[in-house]
Design a protein around this nucleic acid. Structure first.
Lengths: 211, 211
DNA sequence: GTCTATAAGCGGATAGAC
DNA sequence: GTCTATCCGCTTATAGAC
């Protein structure tokens, strides 16, 4: 692994443990076993390291999402399975980059360049949720919605996905498999009133199989 | 206004504008027109100022909530009106103390004492939402729910209320009357599938009257 | 690419006079 | 209650040798 990559990985670990605010470039260099000067050879400043983490996060997230959803067949059962798998993937993903989500608003306030980049990714991800729901309506998995209702529904789902980890943390709750699963349960609770009868059956079938 | 109160108000303004991370105690003292030493006479450190803001926020929030909900009559129309008024109140409230919500996870990570205090308030507020929904079920305004479903539904609503402002900010959207109103629309969208027929009629009546 | 050394500045916090 | 003066520690960032 190159020095540059080691800096990014080390920074991610320290940021997750202690928060990016209290971890200085000196800390990162020391934990890497390199000198501060060397760190500044590879990165202009701390913001640039954070942006590098963000780029990695974006790339990895897209890959994992596509691996689950790119080629799923159009059956309701497959849709339900893909949806549940995606929920789990997103939760694990958020946990891996937890400092970023935890400090998101502060980081964006601090670095306008990062804010612009994130806003674009944010919109495109929300669009992906929108497309996924619209496709599911077409497949008879979700009950039809007016355009405006669909937009609000997507925002609701996307907000839960984005902030569940923060919700746990501000409530003083530990992040573990049980609390992450509860986040998925909240998502399902938001989704349930919109499911069609076949989807409910498919969901029940998947759940039965899991036991 | 006492010096202590002026420090708290000035700090709130500066934190909202620039973020608590970049505003130092020196900045606050200068903006107050007092010396750094004097500030430290009134507060042991910056965390104590932030906790003072939090205590004000908690007190004001409870007062405003009770003013709307304490003595509402048990009719469905009154329940719908109180609910809508509460949504608007909460949005304005979050905006007034926006730095606190924006930086919440970071602030709590930084100050275990604040974290403990906030967790308690958080639980009690969530319980208030729970009680309000349970009462509305009793009044025939919301369709009956199993206990587990009710808990998930409350978490869903509470999460939207807590993080709508953050959601807007991370998307690079301006916070204004229109985007705050959209937050209320998302809340209504989450609520709508659970409303009973009389509640839908009452809601439609209120909306018609508003025009 | 990597190191050492160091400049320059800021933040938190306190002592002691008034 | 309020001020002035000041200390300490730390961070960011750069210069220049190897």
């Amino acid at each position: 692994m190159s020095t540059r990559e080691r800096i990014v990985e080390t920074a991610l670990t320290l940021f997750n443990q202690q928060g990016s605010g209290v971890v200085s470039t000196n800390h990162i260099a020391a934990a890497c076993g390199i000198s501060p000067g060397n760190l500044y050879y590879h990165f202009r400043n701390k913001e640039e390291i954070i942006r590098a983490i963000f780029h990695q996060l974006t790339r990895v997230g897209a890959e994992e999402y596509l691996a689950i959803n790119a080629a799923r067949p159009p059956e309701t059962a497959a849709a339900v399975t893909a949806m549940l798998d995606t929920f789990v993937m997103v939760q694990r993903f958020n946990w891996r980059y937890r400092f970023f989500k935890r400090e998101l608003t502060v980081l964006l306030h601090h670095d306008p360049l990062l804010a612009a980049e994130f806003a674009e990714v944010h919109r495109s991800h929300r669009q992906m949720v929108h497309d996924a729901i619209a496709r599911s309506v077409g497949e008879g998995f979700i009950a039809p919605l007016a355009d405006e209702e669909l937009t609000l529904f997507v925002e609701e789902l996307w907000l839960i996905i984005l902030f569940w980890l923060n919700y746990l943390e501000v409530g003083g709750e530990e992040v573990n498999d049980a609390t992450l699963a509860r986040g998925n349960a909240v998502l399902m609770s938001a989704l349930r009133p919109h499911l069609t009868a076949p989807a409910r059956e498919a969901l029940a079938a998947v759940k039965t199989k899991e036991r």
